[in-house]
């Protein structure tokens, strides 16, 4: 069964720590190792930062954490009606996300930009 935790924070770098701390606590529940948690924190930081950099006039950033057995899926999204450019795959940011997680996806849909990733824990 999947449990979901939703977070809505102001679209400002000052609140990134909240998204990171939430991820840390949830990953600990899923028995992620110290290193896996660190990777996760980097990925959360990166995804949020990338969307914040495209925030335009958006005022909030949404982060949803889906907990599933030993896996955490994170969806970060922001309203961006006037800045539809998703994260390109040939950027360093994409490379960071891909290296830190098991799967990354970007999406531009219904006036929102999304960055989603999946990370399994417990492999040590």
């Amino acid at each position: 069964m999947t449990s979901t935790v939703q977070l809505e924070i102001p679209a400002s770098g000052a609140y990134l720590a909240v998204a990171r701390v939430a991820a840390t606590g949830l990953a600990a529940q899923l028995q992620f190792t110290y290193e896996e948690i660190d990777d996760l924190r980097i990925a959360v930081d990166e995804a949020c930062t990338q969307l914040l950099a495209r925030r335009g006039s958006a005022t909030t950033l949404n982060v949803a954490y889906h907990l599933d057995d030993a896996e955490l899926r994170v969806d970060v999204s922001i309203e961006a009606p006037d800045r539809g450019d998703p994260l390109a795959r040939d950027t360093f940011a994409w490379q960071i996300l891909a290296a830190m997680t098991d799967e990354v996806r970007e999406q531009s849909e219904a006036g929102r930009l999304w960055l989603s990733f999946r990370k399994a824990g417990g492999r040590g």
Binding site: T24, G25, A28, T33, E35, I37, G124
Partner: peptide, 25 residues
Amino acid sequence: GRSPTIAEIATKARLPEEEVLEGLD
């Protein structure tokens, strides 16, 4: 031989998990 989990660190350090998380932050 691998990176420890938070629970393992807490047991070894004899600290509540919360405090370990605080330390990592």
